[in-house]
Protein backbone atom coordinates (compact mmCIF):
# COMPACT_ATOMS: atom_id res chain seq x y z
CA UNK A 1 0.00 0.00 0.00
CA UNK A 2 1.43 3.33 -1.00
CA UNK A 3 1.41 6.33 1.30
CA UNK A 4 -1.29 7.92 -0.83
CA UNK A 5 -3.45 4.82 -0.69
CA UNK A 6 -3.03 4.79 3.07
CA UNK A 7 -3.91 8.46 3.34
CA UNK A 8 -6.94 8.14 1.06
CA UNK A 9 -8.10 4.87 2.55
CA UNK A 10 -7.69 3.62 6.11
CA UNK A 11 -6.19 6.83 7.53
CA UNK A 12 -9.07 8.85 6.14
CA UNK A 13 -11.66 6.39 7.29
CA UNK A 14 -10.36 6.12 10.81
CA UNK A 15 -9.68 9.80 11.24
CA UNK A 16 -13.26 10.52 10.21
CA UNK A 17 -14.58 7.90 12.57
CA UNK A 18 -12.60 9.50 15.39
CA UNK A 19 -13.79 12.94 14.32
CA UNK A 20 -17.47 12.06 14.24
CA UNK A 21 -17.47 9.93 17.37
CA UNK A 22 -15.29 12.41 19.28
CA UNK A 23 -17.37 15.44 18.38
CA UNK A 24 -20.62 13.81 19.46
CA UNK A 25 -19.00 12.40 22.55
CA UNK A 26 -17.68 15.76 23.68
CA UNK A 27 -20.71 17.76 22.62
CA UNK A 28 -23.26 15.36 24.12
CA UNK A 29 -21.27 14.76 27.26
CA UNK A 30 -20.94 18.49 27.85
CA UNK A 31 -24.46 19.64 27.18
CA UNK A 32 -26.07 16.81 29.13
CA UNK A 33 -24.06 17.38 32.32
CA UNK A 34 -27.24 19.04 33.61
CA UNK A 35 -29.14 22.21 33.12
CA UNK A 36 -30.56 23.74 36.24
CA UNK A 37 -33.88 25.42 35.60
CA UNK A 38 -33.75 29.08 36.54
CA UNK A 39 -36.60 29.68 38.99
CA UNK A 40 -36.44 33.46 38.92
CA UNK A 41 -39.13 35.29 36.99
CA UNK A 42 -37.77 36.36 33.62
CA UNK A 43 -38.01 40.03 32.77
CA UNK A 44 -38.50 39.14 29.15
CA UNK A 45 -39.89 35.93 27.77
CA UNK A 46 -37.88 35.83 24.59
CA UNK A 47 -34.75 34.23 25.89
CA UNK A 48 -34.66 31.87 22.90
CA UNK A 49 -34.69 34.69 20.39
CA UNK A 50 -32.04 36.52 22.43
CA UNK A 51 -29.90 33.42 22.48
CA UNK A 52 -30.11 33.01 18.73
CA UNK A 53 -29.38 36.68 18.24
CA UNK A 54 -26.22 36.49 20.32
CA UNK A 55 -24.97 33.60 18.19
CA UNK A 56 -24.93 36.08 15.33
CA UNK A 57 -23.98 39.29 17.10
CA UNK A 58 -20.88 37.90 18.82
CA UNK A 59 -19.35 37.64 15.38
CA UNK A 60 -19.65 41.38 14.92
CA UNK A 61 -17.14 43.99 16.07
CA UNK A 62 -17.62 44.77 19.74
CA UNK A 63 -18.31 48.52 19.79
CA UNK A 64 -16.62 50.19 22.77
CA UNK A 65 -14.51 47.14 23.46
CA UNK A 66 -13.16 47.21 19.95
CA UNK A 67 -10.33 49.68 20.40
CA UNK A 68 -7.98 47.29 22.16
CA UNK A 69 -8.82 44.11 20.33
CA UNK A 70 -8.99 45.36 16.79
CA UNK A 71 -5.95 43.44 15.60
CA UNK A 72 -7.08 40.17 17.13
CA UNK A 73 -10.62 40.65 15.97
CA UNK A 74 -9.91 41.49 12.37
CA UNK A 75 -7.04 39.07 11.96
CA UNK A 76 -9.44 36.49 13.35
CA UNK A 77 -12.07 37.38 10.76
CA UNK A 78 -9.51 37.40 7.98
CA UNK A 79 -7.92 34.05 8.62
CA UNK A 80 -11.18 32.26 9.36
CA UNK A 81 -12.76 33.55 6.17
CA UNK A 82 -9.63 32.86 4.14
CA UNK A 83 -9.43 29.34 5.53
CA UNK A 84 -13.10 28.59 4.87
CA UNK A 85 -12.84 29.89 1.32
CA UNK A 86 -9.75 27.75 0.73
CA UNK A 87 -11.33 24.68 2.27
CA UNK A 88 -14.78 25.01 0.78
CA UNK A 89 -14.19 26.42 -2.68
CA UNK A 90 -11.08 24.69 -4.00
CA UNK A 91 -12.22 22.31 -6.73
CA UNK A 92 -10.39 19.17 -5.46
CA UNK A 93 -11.77 19.84 -1.97
CA UNK A 94 -15.30 20.01 -3.34
CA UNK A 95 -14.69 16.62 -4.96
CA UNK A 96 -13.75 15.32 -1.56
CA UNK A 97 -16.87 16.72 0.08
CA UNK A 98 -18.93 15.35 -2.75
CA UNK A 99 -17.50 11.89 -2.12
CA UNK A 100 -18.54 12.14 1.52
CA UNK A 101 -21.76 14.15 1.34
CA UNK A 102 -23.04 13.09 -2.03
CA UNK A 103 -23.32 16.61 -3.42
CA UNK A 104 -20.98 19.39 -4.47
CA UNK A 105 -21.04 23.08 -5.31
CA UNK A 106 -19.27 25.49 -7.66
CA UNK A 107 -15.59 26.16 -7.08
CA UNK A 108 -13.47 29.29 -7.22
CA UNK A 109 -10.49 29.74 -9.55
CA UNK A 110 -7.27 28.27 -8.21
CA UNK A 111 -5.50 31.64 -8.22
CA UNK A 112 -7.97 32.97 -5.66
CA UNK A 113 -7.62 29.87 -3.51
CA UNK A 114 -3.85 30.24 -3.55
CA UNK A 115 -4.18 33.81 -2.29
CA UNK A 116 -6.67 32.96 0.46
CA UNK A 117 -4.55 30.04 1.63
CA UNK A 118 -1.48 32.27 1.76
CA UNK A 119 -3.40 34.91 3.71
CA UNK A 120 -4.67 32.37 6.23
CA UNK A 121 -1.19 30.93 6.63
CA UNK A 122 0.48 34.31 7.10
CA UNK A 123 -2.03 35.44 9.71
CA UNK A 124 -1.84 32.15 11.57
CA UNK A 125 1.91 32.51 11.80
CA UNK A 126 1.51 36.02 13.13
CA UNK A 127 -1.01 34.79 15.70
CA UNK A 128 1.27 31.92 16.66
CA UNK A 129 4.07 34.38 17.33
CA UNK A 130 1.67 36.63 19.23
CA UNK A 131 0.57 33.73 21.40
CA UNK A 132 4.15 32.89 22.22
CA UNK A 133 5.09 36.46 23.07
CA UNK A 134 2.08 38.41 24.32
CA UNK A 135 1.97 38.24 28.15
CA UNK A 136 -1.81 37.77 28.35
CA UNK A 137 -1.87 34.99 25.80
CA UNK A 138 1.21 33.34 27.28
CA UNK A 139 -0.30 33.05 30.73
CA UNK A 140 -3.53 31.47 29.46
CA UNK A 141 -1.97 29.22 26.82
CA UNK A 142 -1.44 25.51 27.10
CA UNK A 143 -0.31 22.72 24.79
CA UNK A 144 -3.77 22.52 23.24
CA UNK A 145 -3.41 26.07 21.91
CA UNK A 146 -0.16 25.31 20.14
CA UNK A 147 -1.20 21.90 18.85
CA UNK A 148 -4.44 23.34 17.53
CA UNK A 149 -2.72 26.12 15.67
CA UNK A 150 -0.14 23.71 14.22
CA UNK A 151 -2.70 21.22 12.95
CA UNK A 152 -4.37 24.07 11.08
CA UNK A 153 -1.12 25.47 9.74
CA UNK A 154 0.12 22.07 8.54
CA UNK A 155 -2.65 21.39 6.00
CA UNK A 156 -2.26 24.92 4.67
CA UNK A 157 1.45 24.44 4.08
CA UNK A 158 1.15 20.95 2.66
CA UNK A 159 -1.83 22.03 0.59
CA UNK A 160 0.05 24.90 -0.99
CA UNK A 161 3.02 22.61 -1.68
CA UNK A 162 0.79 19.96 -3.23
CA UNK A 163 -0.96 22.57 -5.32
CA UNK A 164 2.34 23.98 -6.54
CA UNK A 165 3.97 20.53 -6.90
CA UNK A 166 6.88 21.73 -4.81
CA UNK A 167 9.37 19.64 -2.90
CA UNK A 168 8.35 16.09 -3.76
CA UNK A 169 6.28 14.04 -6.16
CA UNK A 170 2.64 14.96 -6.36
CA UNK A 171 1.33 11.75 -4.84
CA UNK A 172 3.67 12.17 -1.88
CA UNK A 173 2.64 15.79 -1.42
CA UNK A 174 -1.01 14.87 -1.76
CA UNK A 175 -0.60 12.04 0.72
CA UNK A 176 1.15 14.30 3.23
CA UNK A 177 -1.53 16.92 2.73
CA UNK A 178 -4.26 14.36 3.35
CA UNK A 179 -2.43 13.02 6.38
CA UNK A 180 -2.08 16.53 7.81
CA UNK A 181 -5.81 17.07 7.38
CA UNK A 182 -6.41 13.71 9.02
CA UNK A 183 -4.21 14.80 11.91
CA UNK A 184 -6.51 17.79 12.22
CA UNK A 185 -9.56 15.52 12.16
CA UNK A 186 -8.10 13.36 14.89
CA UNK A 187 -7.13 16.31 17.08
CA UNK A 188 -10.36 18.21 16.46
CA UNK A 189 -12.62 16.58 19.08
CA UNK A 190 -9.98 16.67 21.81
CA UNK A 191 -8.73 20.22 21.58
CA UNK A 192 -10.05 23.71 21.33
CA UNK A 193 -10.92 23.34 17.67
CA UNK A 194 -14.18 22.08 19.13
CA UNK A 195 -15.13 25.72 19.57
CA UNK A 196 -16.29 25.39 15.95
CA UNK A 197 -19.26 23.48 17.34
CA UNK A 198 -19.29 24.63 20.97
CA UNK A 199 -19.41 28.32 20.22
CA UNK A 200 -23.04 27.96 19.18
CA UNK A 201 -24.41 26.61 22.48
CA UNK A 202 -22.01 28.85 24.38
CA UNK A 203 -23.13 32.04 22.67
CA UNK A 204 -26.73 30.94 22.82
CA UNK A 205 -26.45 30.55 26.59
CA UNK A 206 -24.91 33.97 26.98
CA UNK A 207 -27.67 35.52 24.92
CA UNK A 208 -30.51 33.70 26.63
CA UNK A 209 -29.31 33.93 30.22
CA UNK A 210 -28.63 37.65 29.92
CA UNK A 211 -31.66 38.06 27.70
CA UNK A 212 -34.11 36.79 30.29
CA UNK A 213 -32.79 39.49 32.60
CA UNK A 214 -33.43 42.07 29.92
CA UNK A 215 -29.80 42.54 28.95
CA UNK A 216 -28.58 42.31 25.39
CA UNK A 217 -25.52 40.09 25.55
Amino acid sequence: MTLLDFARGPALQWSMIILVAGVLWRLGGTILINAKKDLSKARKEHAVADGLKTIATRSLPAHQFEKNIRFQHFSGYAWHIALFVSVLFFAPHILFFESVLGFGWPSLPNSIILITAAIALAILFALLIRRATHPVQRIISNADDYISILVVIAPLITGILAFAHLGARYETLLAVHLLSVEALFVWFPFGKLMHTALTFPSRYQAGSSYGRKGVRA
Binding site: T30, H73, H134, I140, N142, D145, K192, H195, L198
Partner: peptide, 8 residues
Protein backbone atom coordinates in the same frame (compact mmCIF):
# COMPACT_ATOMS: atom_id res chain seq x y z
CA UNK B 1 -15.13 23.56 27.10
CA UNK B 2 -15.40 26.46 24.70
CA UNK B 3 -12.74 28.93 25.89
CA UNK B 4 -10.14 29.31 23.14
CA UNK B 5 -7.65 31.29 25.24
CA UNK B 6 -7.76 34.29 22.96
CA UNK B 7 -7.26 36.68 25.86
CA UNK B 8 -9.62 39.33 24.54
Amino acid sequence: ETCIHCGM
